[in-house]
Design a protein around this nucleic acid. Structure first.
Length: 217
DNA sequence: TAGTCGCC
DNA sequence: ACAC
């Protein structure tokens, strides 16, 4: 069996979890979903400053950000329609690596251009804070930064490549993290408007209980 | 503070 | 480190 590196904080990097064919299939499913749930530009609460990353979602709930704040919504902020279904391959990934008995309720699609960044933050908009966060990298390499429970905690950086899977479990679930930069032209997976660029798929459990996750409280 | 800028 |  393959031994993947696990920190004592519950952070796991699974390099090249998906092979090239699986990556291409995932990318194709993202392209298809974006036809129904087009990318939107999230913005900061209060200031309304746009983020440099564009987003959409799979699943019963989707993460959105605007002047009103960060939250999960069952419908696309622009089209008003429900998010596309979560791809089976992602549900299987969650089942294989999350160790969580219930399925993910949200999968955020983050699309990075060559200039996109994501500042240090903690995923804090979920009730289910004990459930791990599982993410997949597609396309160009990125420098990922992982800190600690406080903004002032020391950080370390690591490279994420296409097909890599990251699990933020245990204590690391509540650690600051972000994306410092994208390295354009370091992958040939994506094409068209997403090349150069990177797509990250991030699955989360939003509410505790609820089994299939389709019930709204 | 899911931001930007600028310096070493 | 800033200013929001």
């Amino acid at each position: 069996m393959t031994a993947y590196a696990t920190t004592r904080n519950g952070f796991r990097l699974l390099p090249e979890y998906f092979d090239r064919v699986q990556q291409a299939d995932l990318a194709a499913q993202v392209m298809g979903a974006l036809q129904d749930a087009p990318l939107f530009t999230p913005s900061m609460p209060r200031t309304g400053k746009p983020l440099s990353v564009q987003m959409s979602n799979f699943g019963p709930l989707g993460w959105v950000a605007d002047r009103s704040g960060y939250r999960y919504e069952a419908r696309h902020p622009v089209t008003g329609t429900p998010w596309p279904a979560m791809p089976q391959a992602l549900l299987e990934l969650w089942e294989a690596v999350s160790g969580w008995p219930e399925p993910p309720q949200a999968c955020l699609i983050n699309v990075y251009g060559p200039q996109s960044r994501l500042g240090l933050h903690i995923d804090a908009d979920e009730d289910a804070r004990e459930a791990p966060v599982v993410s997949v990298s597609l396309g160009d390499r990125a420098r990922f930064r992982l800190g600690g429970p406080q903004r002032s905690s020391p950080t370390r950086s690591l490279f994420l490549s296409s097909g890599d899977v990251v699990v933020l479990g245990g204590a690391s679930r509540r650690f600051f993290h972000g994306v410092d930069r994208i390295y354009p032209g370091t992958s040939t997976l994506l094409s068209g408007p997403f090349s150069p660029g990177r797509i990250n798929l991030t699955m989360r459990r939003v509410h505790t209980g609820g089994g299939a996750g389709t019930t709204r409280s």
